[in-house]
Amino acid sequence: MSTAGFIALTDTPVTVPLPEQSSASAGLDFATADNITIVEDGVYRVDFHVLGSYGEIGNVNVSLAIDGTPQPGGMLAYELLASELITFTLTNYYTLTAGAQLSLQMFASVPGNFFFAATGPSATLSVERVA
C-alpha cells in the first residue's frame, strides 16, 4: 500500500512505491522493497487499485509486473486531462511460482507527475492464493 505524494512518469515504466504492508499476509514475502514475493506455487487472485491525478494531458498506464515485466492481462491505460481525478482498478488470476516478484509499474505518454490521493491508501497491490 502506498501513501506517497507523487511519482514522476515518462514513457519508461517506473515502480510504484508500496511501503506499507498488511499484517495478514501468510504465504507472501515483503523483503524486497515495493514488491510482493510469492512463497508457494499456486493460483493467485491479484488486485490493484491506484487513485490520483496527472499533472498533464496524456495517457497514463498502470500495470502489474511479474519479475519486472508488465503483464498484458494486468494493464490499464486511460487518457487523462490535467488534474482529473482517476481510479485504476483491476482484478485477475495468475498461476505463479515460488520466487515470483509482483509490483506495480506506471508510465505515461507525456512526461509529468502523477499525484496520489492526499488521504488514505492511494496505491494498493493485493495478492491472495486461491488454489
Rank of each mutant, 00 (worst) to 15 (best):
3 T>V: 15
3 T>S: 15
4 A>M: 07
4 A>D: 05
5 G>N: 07
6 F>E: 05
7 I>E: 05
10 T>A: 14
12 T>W: 03
12 T>N: 06
13 P>D: 06
14 V>E: 14
15 T>D: 07
16 V>N: 14
16 V>M: 12
16 V>G: 13
17 P>A: 07
21 Q>C: 12
22 S>R: 00
24 A>C: 09
25 S>Y: 03
26 A>C: 00
26 A>M: 02
26 A>T: 09
28 L>A: 05
28 L>Q: 02
29 D>Q: 03
29 D>G: 01
30 F>L: 06
31 A>W: 03
31 A>T: 09
32 T>P: 00
32 T>D: 12
32 T>F: 02
33 A>G: 12
34 D>M: 09
35 N>S: 12
36 I>D: 00
36 I>M: 04
37 T>L: 09
39 V>E: 11
40 E>L: 03
41 D>K: 09
42 G>K: 12
42 G>Q: 10
45 R>K: 15
46 V>H: 02
47 D>P: 00
47 D>V: 08
49 H>R: 08
49 H>N: 07
50 V>L: 08
50 V>N: 06
52 G>P: 05
52 G>W: 03
52 G>E: 05
53 S>R: 02
54 Y>I: 01
55 G>K: 00
55 G>N: 13
58 G>W: 00
58 G>Y: 01
59 N>F: 05
61 N>M: 10
62 V>A: 10
62 V>P: 04
62 V>C: 10
62 V>R: 05
62 V>F: 02
63 S>P: 09
64 L>Y: 07
65 A>I: 00
65 A>K: 12
66 I>D: 00
67 D>C: 15
68 G>K: 14
69 T>E: 13
72 P>E: 08
73 G>W: 03
73 G>F: 13
73 G>Y: 03
73 G>H: 01
74 G>R: 02
77 A>W: 01
77 A>K: 03
78 Y>F: 11
78 Y>A: 00
78 Y>G: 02
78 Y>V: 01
78 Y>I: 00
79 E>W: 09
79 E>S: 12
79 E>H: 11
81 L>F: 08
83 S>I: 09
86 I>V: 15
87 T>G: 10
87 T>C: 11
87 T>N: 11
88 F>N: 12
88 F>R: 08
88 F>W: 08
90 L>Q: 13
90 L>R: 10
91 T>P: 07
92 N>K: 08
93 Y>M: 08
94 Y>S: 01
98 A>V: 03
102 L>F: 10
105 Q>H: 07
106 M>H: 01
108 A>D: 06
109 S>C: 04
110 V>Y: 09
111 P>G: 07
112 G>N: 11
112 G>D: 13
114 F>P: 08
114 F>Q: 03
116 F>S: 02
117 A>K: 06
118 A>L: 11
118 A>C: 07
118 A>H: 14
119 T>Y: 12
121 P>E: 15
122 S>W: 04
129 R>Q: 15
130 V>Y: 13
131 A>G: 15
131 A>S: 13
